[in-house]
C-alpha cells in the first residue's frame, strides 16, 4: 500500500499534494477540437472552462487545451462565438 502511516503524515490533516496531480482528463468522453483558422483567441473558452484546462500561451499568442484536466463538458464549444470548437468522440 502506498498510503502513509499515522507517524509519517503531518498533524492536523494538512493536505500535502496539489490536486493538479489528479488527472481528471480521464473522465472525458467527448474531446474539444479547435479549428485554429476560425479561432479569434477571444479567450472566452479559457475564461469559462470549469477545469482551468484551456491555457493562454502569450509567447505563441494562442490557446492550448490541457487534456490532462479537460472533462469534456463542452462549455467551450457551446460558448465559442465563432464556433471554432467541436466536441468529438475520439
Amino acid at each position: 500500500m502506498s498510503e502513509k502511516s499515522w507517524k509519517e503524515i503531518s498533524i492536523g490533516a494538512v493536505c500535502w499534494k496539489p490536486s493538479t496531480a489528479l488527472l481528471t482528463g480521464d473522465w472525458r468522453t467527448y474531446t474539444p477540437v479547435r479549428d485554429p483558422a476560425k479561432c479569434t483567441r477571444c479567450l472566452l473558452c479559457a475564461i469559462y472552462c470549469p477545469d482551468g484546462a484551456i491555457h493562454w500561451k502569450p509567447e505563441r499568442n494562442d490557446i492550448e487545451f490541457d487534456y490532462n484536466y479537460c472533462k469534456g463538458c463542452g462549455i467551450c464549444a457551446n460558448e465559442c462565438p465563432t464556433k471554432a470548437i467541436e466536441m468529438k468522440l475520439l
Binding site: 493538479t20 477571444c42 475564461i47 470549469p50 477545469d51 484546462a53 463538458c73 462549455i75
Partner: peptide, 26 residues
C-alpha cells in the same frame, strides 16, 4: 482584459473533482 484574466494563475487549481460542466467551479 481577458488576457489578463487568462494569464493570472489559477488559485483554484485544476484536478478538482467537480462534475463536468459544473457552473460553480467556473
Amino acid at each position: 482584459t481577458s488576457k489578463d484574466i487568462a494569464e493570472k494563475p489559477d488559485l483554484f487549481m485544476s484536478g478538482h473533482r467537480a462534475c463536468a460542466g459544473c457552473g460553480a467551479t467556473t
